[in-house]
């Protein structure tokens, strides 16, 4: 029952985040979606990633959203969609069908409970998998974090740079 409530809560928060016109409220609904997704991950058995998702997805990303919205102002845009809504719905249904077609044949639900039972034996391998088998991913993450730092510098320092340029020209 609690799994059903978590799933329904995730979908409700995601829909409210998309439908909300005020940007700040939309960012807060997104944070709540992240928190519930991390809870679902914990229920599935991925505790390590759930912690990272809770701290990064619900924490850091929300702070960045609020910071950016604070800079640009809570601008509300007319609700008329740039794309015809029926066309968007057709794209969503086609995408969902394609995803279901790819996911469902690979589902072997009877294995799920057996794997959950040996959860204790599987614990502790995450560190070795991350640092040895997937070491290229770790390198990629370092590069991505570096580019993220550059983007934050652009986010913070853009206006000062423009002002100093204008002062020099003046």
């Amino acid at each position: 029952m609690i799994n059903f409530l978590i799933g329904a809560g995730i979908l409700a928060c995601a829909i409210l985040a998309v439908r909300e016109n005020r940007l700040l409220v939309s960012a807060l609904w997104l944070a709540l979606t992240s928190a519930l997704v991390s809870f679902l991950m914990y229920r599935v058995g991925a505790a390590e990633v759930a912690v990272v998702e809770l701290s990064v997805g619900a924490g850091l990303v929300t702070v960045l959203f609020v910071f950016a919205i604070n800079i640009i102002g809570n601008e509300s845009v007319a609700s008329q969609a740039p794309l015809p809504r029926p066309l968007a719905w057709v794209a969503i249904v086609l995408g969902g069908l394609l995803l279901a077609w790819m996911i469902l044949p690979s589902m072997q639900l009877e294995r799920f409970t057996a794997v959950l039972e040996q959860q204790g034996e599987l614990a502790g391998l995450f560190r070795s998998v991350l640092w040895t088998d997937r070491s290229v991913d770790s390198l990629l993450q370092v590069v991505l974090i570096f580019s993220g730092v550059l983007a934050v510098l652009g986010l913070i320092g853009g206006e000062e740079g423009l002002e100093s340029k204008e002062e020099k020209q003046g």
């Binding site: 990633v49 990272v52 998702e53 998998v129």
Partner: peptide, 12 residues
Amino acid sequence: VDVGQSLALTVI
């Protein structure tokens, strides 16, 4: 599950 978690971490 550890490979799945590792990939999910990269995606995050």
